[in-house]
């Protein structure tokens, strides 16, 4: 079966959805991605949807699920490159990508992920320092 490749770049995983996904493919992607996060210990997932010409409730739900699963596995998700027509349609459809960060392009998305992991690391260090003092 056709699969969507998951690329690793340092601490992050990158997915670019460039085909008209059928439903099974979307389900496989969810599974593949969670496995990959665990395998690599990645702290960020970037999903590029710049070539998708529509996002319906099924794909929207998939993105939401990926984001929640990633969060549980200690990884942030950012969706980048949504086309304006897709964004307009998504809002009218009534779909909210709750808890999913978005950025205009891959570069800005990577910046967002880097900032998110930095601030998280700082928080973790603070917590560790605090526990030492106690």
């Amino acid at each position: 079966m056709e699969r969507i490749p998951i690329l690793r770049m340092g601490d992050f995983l990158i997915i670019s959805i460039q085909v008209d996904m059928h439903d099974r493919m979307a389900m496989t992607l969810q599974d593949d991605l969670t496995n990959k996060i665990i395998q690599t210990g990645a702290h960020g997932v970037l999903i590029d949807i710049s070539t998708l010409d529509m996002v319906d409730s099924f794909i929207g739900r998939m993105i939401n699920i990926i984001a929640s699963m990633s969060r549980i596995l200690d990884a942030e998700t950012v969706v980048v490159g949504m086309q304006p027509a897709v964004a307009i349609t998504l809002v009218e459809l009534g779909l909210t990508l709750s808890g999913v960060r978005t950025a205009l392009d891959v570069e800005k998305g990577m910046e967002l992920l880097r900032a998110a992991t930095r601030s998280r690391r700082a928080e973790a260090e603070e917590r560790e320092d605090g526990s030492v003092e106690e």
Binding site: D53, F58, A85, I88, T89, E92
Partner: peptide
């Protein structure tokens, strides 16, 4: 894919094409 082709043929704007395709996708599912 069929709906996209027809919507383009009829000269719908990109936003309208996207709306029609998305609605069709929901109902087909």
């Amino acid at each position: 894919q069929a709906v996209r082709k027809w919507a383009i043929e009829l000269g719908f704007s990109l936003v309208d094409q996207t709306k029609i395709i998305t609605a069709a996708s929901e109902l087909a599912r």
